[in-house]
């Protein structure tokens, strides 16, 4: 017999955990896990809000920089889609996408649609999202037709504003209320009257095009 570990303690002295021990540990882990589920869910929602905030800020920043770089209008569109395929499903702002307009006025997507995490929506009420006022709803026309959005086709609506080549926007300057949108947990509903406990507002300076965000 060849001793692989001649100096090793006898195996018997390193016997495995007993079944009881394992069951106990697993039980404890299970109990801890069950107890931690609510807390993890909250963290997950918060993380999703952060992700969504980063996603929109990134898209806006890229859109603005692209407008400056290529000397073109770049339009940021906020997509309002149904929650599900059911006809009665509510409309929610869940996606954002930037389009570049060429010299002839034709729009080309800057990149693919940026979908927000399912846990997060952009509040559609003008109290929390002045950028989504009815007056800013995108009007499709022959010159500017509605493109197909993967997963939604043309069954969506869009609200839009543009970054201009000098970095500013086409938004009305010096508004009484700043131009902004608010992201919050989808479970809280939509068109809230007041900001929830956790939210992210993204403010756009209409003159300079600079963006800033606010978290409570």
């Amino acid at each position: 017999m060849i001793m692989l570990y001649p100096n090793a303690p006898h195996r018997r002295t390193r016997a495995a955990f007993t079944l009881f021990e394992l069951l106990m540990v697993m039980g404890i882990v299970l109990i801890i896990g069950v107890l931690a589920i609510p807390a993890l869910s909250s963290v997950k929602r918060s993380t999703a809000l952060t992700r969504a905030e980063d996603e929109i800020l990134g898209e806006l920043s890229l859109a603005r920089q692209h407008a400056i770089s290529v000397n073109r209008d770049v339009e940021v569109r906020f997509y309002r889609v149904r929650e599900s395929a059911a006809p009665s499903a509510p409309w929610r702002f869940r996606a954002v996408q930037a389009y570049t307009y060429d010299a002839a006025g034709a729009a080309t997507p800057l990149r693919i649609v940026r979908m927000l995490p399912r846990e997060v929506v952009i509040d559609s009420g003008t109290t929390l999202s002045t950028l989504l006022a009815a007056a800013r709803k995108k009007a499709w026309s022959a010159d500017d037709p509605q493109p197909v959005v993967p997963g939604y086709g043309t069954d969506y609506e869009a609200w839009a504003f543009r970054f201009r080549p000098e970095g500013g926007t086409d938004l009305t300057p010096f508004p009484a209320t700043p131009w902004f949108i608010t992201l919050h947990d989808a479970g809280l509903g939509d068109s809230l009257a007041t900001p929830p406990a956790n939210y992210a507002s993204i403010v756009v300076d209409p003159v300079s095009g600079q963006m800033s965000s606010f978290r409570p």
Partner: peptide, 11 residues
């Protein structure tokens, strides 16, 4: 440069 207004669609 042709501009189509994002809201009104005016060209």
């Amino acid at each position: 440069v042709v501009r189509v207004d994002s809201v009104t669609g005016a060209r």
